[in-house]
Structure formats: C-alpha cells, structure tokens
C-alpha cells in the first residue's frame, strides 16, 4: 500500500461493489455501489438508522460486510488482516463521541499510533503531533487530559490524532452531533480547512452548510440503500426522490 503510485490517482481510491451487510436477520446495507476518487469530498446524510455510519465503518473494517466487495486503493478489505491493518494506517477516522484516550494527555493521544504502528521515533512523532495540534489550533492544550477540554476542543484533538498517521483519506462519523451548538463551528472550520488542502473525505453529517461548502457529492441514504447522489447544488435545489425531499424538508426546517 505504501508503494502505491500517486500517479494512479485517476483510479478511484475507495470502491464499493454490491456491498451488503446484515446484523443477524436485519439488513443494514443493501447493494451499495460507490466510488470515491482521491481528493474527493463526500457528504453522507439520511435519517438515523439509514446505514450511513455502518457504510463508512465498513471502509476501515470496524464493521464486516457479508456480500459484494469493498476496495481501498485496489486492495480488498475483508478477510486478510494485513490488508485491514494497511487500510487502517492509511484511512483516519473521527468519531461522534471523540473517543480520545482519557488516561493520556493530548500529546500522548497523538503520538501513540505513529510510534506503535509506524515505528516513528518519539521525537519525530512529537514534532508531527505538535505541528498538527497547532494546525487545529490547540497546541496550547497539548499537556492537558481530554476531560479538561471542551467537546469542540476534544474533537479537534481527535482530528489531529487521526492526521498524525498521515492518512490518505479521512472518515468522519457525525463529528459534530455530540457537540454543543457553539462548538460546532470550530470543528467544521477545521474540517473545511482540511478539505481545502485536498484531503479525501467521507463525512456522515447533517451539517448542510458544510455539505454545500465542501462536498463534491452529497449522498442520501435510507433503510440501508443509497437513494440519491448528486453535487450539492443540485441535491439541495432539486432533489429527485420523494424520500430525499421529505428528509431535506425536515432537516432544513430545523435550521
């Protein structure tokens, strides 16, 4: 994976082909087909339980899928633990609940994975972590513990922690849903600046302003299926499906 040739970026980075997933007898994903090119920004939205989180969690195999195939940089994510490891090294993830390690300082959170999985020497890992913490504007909190930070600060640390692995793509699983309203903006701003720098991003979010501003495509899911997929302009102005119109009606009336 490290040897992947950057000039092949015309190839899609992440490919879903007829992916299906069940939880027991409940079908969580139905015939998912999706291609994400390098540098592309995708926003996934849909009602709760529509499978959007499940979909992105399949990419780094936090959730296994049962049918179809899912490729990341041409490698099939599935049975082979080496490929799963490789994909997880290259694809960062940010969670709704931050999931920072509470017994470590902000800096320790950031250097753990590079030191353990990339075998980066401590000084180099610290230097990278400090640079990225500075970038998410939280370097002054580097020696604090997560519980001493606000939700928005914690989520920015979580973003920096994922970036410390120098990933080729980032997955965001409702990154602002657990935040107080006044903290949403600081996290979105961080994500926007990441997008502007060309990061490949798949974001599960209901922040439609963010979708309008950065998304190349907005994907609407319901009941485990991709219902509609369009550039944001078209998606918001002229949604094709009744289910999408209804959803947008509900979500936009809230804002």
């Amino acid at each position: 994976m490290n040897n992947a040739n950057p000039s092949t970026s015309a190839e899609p980075m992440i490919v879903f082909r007829h992916v299906e997933k069940w939880y027991g007898s409940f079908k969580a994903l139905t015939d998912i087909n999706l291609e994400v090119r390098t540098g592309e920004k995708i926003v996934l939205c849909g009602p709760s339980g529509s499978g959007k989180s499940t979909l992105i969690r399949c990419i780094n195999h936090l959730e296994p899928y049962q049918k179809g195939e899912l490729l990341v940089e041409g490698l099939k994510v599935g049975e082979d633990p080496k490929i799963i490891d490789a994909v997880r090294r290259e694809v960062g993830m940010v969670f709704q609940q931050f999931n920072l390690f509470p017994h470590m300082t902000v800096l320790e959170n950031c250097i753990l994975a590079p030191m353990r999985t990339r075998k980066t020497p401590r000084e180099a890992a610290v230097a990278t972590a400090r640079r990225l913490l500075d970038r998410v504007k939280i370097l002054d909190q580097a020696d604090k513990y997560p519980a001493q930070l606000s939700g928005g600060q914690q989520q920015r640390v979580a973003i920096a922690r994922a970036l410390c692995m120098e990933p080729k793509a980032m997955l965001f699983d409702e990154p602002t849903s657990a935040l107080d309203p006044e903290m949403v903006k600081e996290v979105l701003d961080t994500m926007i600046s990441l997008a502007e720098e060309g990061m490949t991003m798949i974001c599960v979010t209901h922040e439609m302003g963010f979708a309008r501003q950065v998304a190349d495509r907005v994907i609407f899911m319901a009941k485990g299926e991709i219902i509609e997929e369009a550039p944001p302009e078209q998606f918001f102005r002229n949604p094709q499906h009744k289910r999408t119109q209804q959803f947008l009606g509900e979500i936009l009336s809230r804002h």
Binding site: N60, L62, D85, A86, R88, R89, G92, M93, F95, Q97, N99, L100, F101, L112, A113, R116, T117, A158, R161, A162, M165
Partner: peptide
C-alpha cells in the same frame, strides 16, 4: 469506542 478508536488507528492487539 476506546477499542474502536484504537482499531481505527491500526493499533495491534497488544498495543
């Protein structure tokens, strides 16, 4: 979520 975050960072079982 702690284990999931560790998995997503590609930390191995022992770490």
């Amino acid at each position: 979520g702690q284990t999931e975050a560790a998995l997503a960072l590609s930390l191995r079982y022992w770490s």
